[in-house]
Amino acid sequence: MSLIPEFFRLLRVEMVKTFLKKRTYLGFLIILLIVPLVEIALKIEGGRFLRMAMRGIAQDFILLGNVFNGWFVSLQIMNSLWIQIPILISFVAGDQLAGEATGGTYRLLLIRPVSRTKIFLAKYLTTVLYVVLFVTFLGVLSVGLALLLLGSGDMIVLQQGILVLPESDVAWRFVMAYILAAWSMTTVASIGFLFSSFVENAIGPIVGTMGVIIVLTIITVIPVETFSGIREYLFTYHMASWQKMFADPVPWGDIRSSVLNLAGYIIATLTAAWIIFVRKDVLS
């Protein structure tokens, strides 16, 4: 008998399984290829990108110093990768339970004198750890490399009009933005987890998760009156709340309600997944 408490043993089991699996690193690999590629290209292209983006809005602006810098590029990267990240997340989260079904390993795992609830929690925590590591990796790589390549400076934000944030006021906003992004991705992972609990194939949970995100995103952005009432209850409406970290002043009230909305989705999907998982007949 080992002295390590049961739950830590279960956690270790799930982590070993997840982090020794190739698919876990696919997302990391893609990021590792894309981010440097884009950032190096932007360095070579120089400020043309910025001038194009600002054409029309700010012809008369006189910008002092280096505004085409690492901060500016990091934000562009975050904005454009934002659509792809959920796929990579669901790729791993969706496999957590469904992978055991397709592999036939539920028959190995669920005959042990350990409650299914504990196994479920260990699996979920492992998934959350993956999300945190992944988002951290993305953040450190994209911001770090961008600063290295393009240097620091005041940050220019092209959201509604032009906002210039002083150099000293930027770093903490990125940290907060990535924390909020991790929270959004935890929501995505929880949805993937829910699909994973009852879909017993490799691709289903990914398709399911992305399907939900795409449909709800359409409802969120489409300018139709009918949807206006429900829009703000959809998690897709709140998923990009990290962008608000680059407004001045930061709309903390909005961010708070987004965080709570996402928490609601996490709790709901997790509860549903848990009920399905513990009641499940293992027929695979």
């Binding site: 390590i4 043993r9 089991v13 795992l109 042990r112």
Partner: peptide
């Protein structure tokens, strides 16, 4: 891993 599920 299986051993871990049985108490190590």
């Amino acid at each position: 891993l299986i051993g871990s599920l049985n108490g190590g």
